[in-house]
């Protein structure tokens, strides 16, 4: 059911297939004079874990909408340039076709609700894909378990709390087991423990099953040290891209007003005291560095 991650071949001629390719993309929503995206170029390989960040209104959701064809098929406007999903030109393929490859969780989970009950909501996509009832039943149980919401199985959708609804919508997308998963602020209504459990799960399916994960997320503490790439948008343009450890230290992030996770931020502030250390991203990395300082009085010499 799950596809294993591809191993690079020993001869070195292996080319990872691209999951997503964006070429010179500019997009204006209908009736707008200002483009929501400006000349975006981006390549995401299969099996990558990509964080998209940027200030409010910078175009994160708009970019996500091009990955499953909602733009240009559902949101009208002027689209220049190209987006390819596993080599398919999104302009030529319907949202329905693309959604077999790309599963997307919207920023506002309520916009995604299609049925009345939790169980039906998760079954809906699976039925459309033509799975037999016993498989559907298994998948439902599995994703309810993953999201920690077994107790909600027989509940009515509009009687759920904000976080409960978000977990159900995430579960309904996970159930379809697409190769590429796009999450637009998937944990915004989740309590911190639930959010962390879910983020750990996204890392697990990326690592173990080779799923391509693209995530717009404000809670970066956990995923930042794991992500293969971070894309920073500002005003519709990519202003920084690359390895999170490097990108996080760029001053532009603070200039455009986006949040830096606490641990790297702390070490930015300690820069004068600890000038030559590599920036820790996790609590463990921070502890081992500070531990050395405390034990030796100085980390100098490393």
């Amino acid at each position: 059911m799950y596809r294993a991650i591809k191993e690079p071949s020993k001869t070195g001629d292996f080319k990872m297939t691209e999951a997503i390719r964006v070429e010179n993309l500019t997009f204006y929503y209908e009736g707008e004079v200002k483009p929501a995206l400006k000349n975006i170029n981006l390549s995401i390989n299969e099996g990558e874990y990509v964080i998209i960040t940027g200030p409010s209104g910078s175009g994160k959701s708009t970019l996500c909408r091009t990955f499953n064809g909602l733009i240009p098929h559902f949101y009208k406007g002027k689209m220049e340039g190209e987006v390819y999903v596993k080599g398919l030109r999104v302009k030529e393929h319907s949202v329905r076709e693309l959604s077999k490859i790309v599963g997307m969780v919207f920023q506002e989970p309520e916009n995604q609700v299609l049925t009345l009950s939790v169980k039906d909501e998760i079954a809906f996509g699976l039925e459309n894909l033509g799975y037999p009832p016993n498989v559907i039943e298994d998948r439902i149980e599995h994703v309810l378990d993953v999201m920690g919401i077994k107790h909600l199985k027989n509940k009515v959708i509009f009687e759920l709390s904000g976080g409960e609804l978000q977990k159900v919508i995430v579960a309904s997308i996970l159930a379809m087991n697409p190769d590429i998963l796009v999450f637009d602020e998937p944990t915004s209504n989740m309590d911190p423990k639930s959010a962390l459990d879910f983020l750990k799960y996204t890392v697990k399916i990326n690592k173990e099953y080779g799923k391509t994960v693209i995530i717009v997320e404000h809670r970066l503490d956990y995923i930042i040290s794991y992500a293969s790439k971070i894309v920073v948008l500002n005003d519709g343009e990519i202003v920084a891209i690359g390895n999170p450890r490097k990108v996080l230290m760029e001053d532009i992030l603070e200039d455009i007003g986006i949040s830096i996770p606490q641990i790297p931020l702390l070490f930015k502030k300690l820069k004068r005291l600890l000038p030559c250390c590599e920036t820790p991203l996790t609590i463990e990395e921070a502890l081992s560095l500070l531990g050395r300082v405390i034990a030796e009085g100085s980390y100098r010499g490393t």
Partner: peptide, 22 residues
């Protein structure tokens, strides 16, 4: 009990005080 996760900086100083006895 309330599914709270401490902000990293809080976890960090708690661990600092525990592990290194500072």
């Amino acid at each position: 009990r309330a599914n709270i996760i401490r902000p990293p900086i809080i976890s960090l100083i708690i661990e600092l005080s525990k592990r290194y006895n500072v």
